[in-house]
Write a protein that binds this DNA or RNA. Structure first.
Lengths: 109, 109
DNA sequence: TCAATATAACACCAAATGGTATCACAACAG
DNA sequence: CTGTTGTGATACCATTTGGTGTTATATTGA
């Protein structure tokens, strides 16, 4: 359904990127702050952030000379959507989950 | 939590492999049957199936001289598990979903 | 044995990953 | 205003990984 399902799956395929998402789930961070948590360079981290952004999983907010990276709450919806297409083995409890997520949507961003 | 979370995410990152999973959700298939649906060679398909197997998403059942590939119902559980670690933005409706899925488990394989 | 199928072993090309510069720009001190 | 500094962006390069094909080698049923 979403146009960037592939980009989302691709973004999640890398363990570093999944870890970055966890970091961002705790708080918004600049590139430098994210890079501090890894042994990689800022440039390398920046590339991961770009992939995450392409996958709709984060958004970037310019703030002075910094750019704050923020987790997009509904960025993983494409994944959930895809998972729920397996209605054969995902029984109706999962269907309930899907509708719960769809009810969710973005709060008041 | 599952040891092969990375393998599962990696397996899902490729669109061909996701399509294969959809095919297998309709019915069990041999490599040849899967390969019919694509323009790739059997060998190429086989490699995708190996990746899917590594990710715990399918299982292979020898049947005579053929090997039937079958979707593993709970193979995507690592993904769900990972998604539900984001309890900050996945509110308690998702938590309910998680417990529902955990209640699920394999029926009577 | 023969035919069909599955698997293994290579090779090739594209893409992903990460490093090192380097550049642009905003913030700030003087 | 001017120069310095920190931050992010970008370009280039090397290495690795992934996807696919081709070919060769089992394995199995008849």
């Amino acid at each position: 359904m979403p146009p960037h399902t592939q980009a989302t799956f691709r973004a999640l395929a890398d363990p570093t990127r999944r870890e970055i998402l966890h970091l961002l789930s705790a708080q918004d961070m600049t590139i430098a702050q994210v890079a501090e948590q890894f042994t990689m360079t800022r440039a390398a981290v920046k590339k991961h952030l770009t992939v995450l952004s392409d996958g709709g999983l984060i958004e970037v907010q310019p703030q002075g000379r910094e750019r704050v990276n923020r987790l997009r709450r509904d960025g993983m919806k494409p994944v959930i959507d895809w998972l729920t297409t397996f209605d054969i083995f995902w029984d109706d409890r999962l269907a309930a989950l899907k509708s719960a997520i769809e009810t969710y949507e973005a709060p008041d961003d």
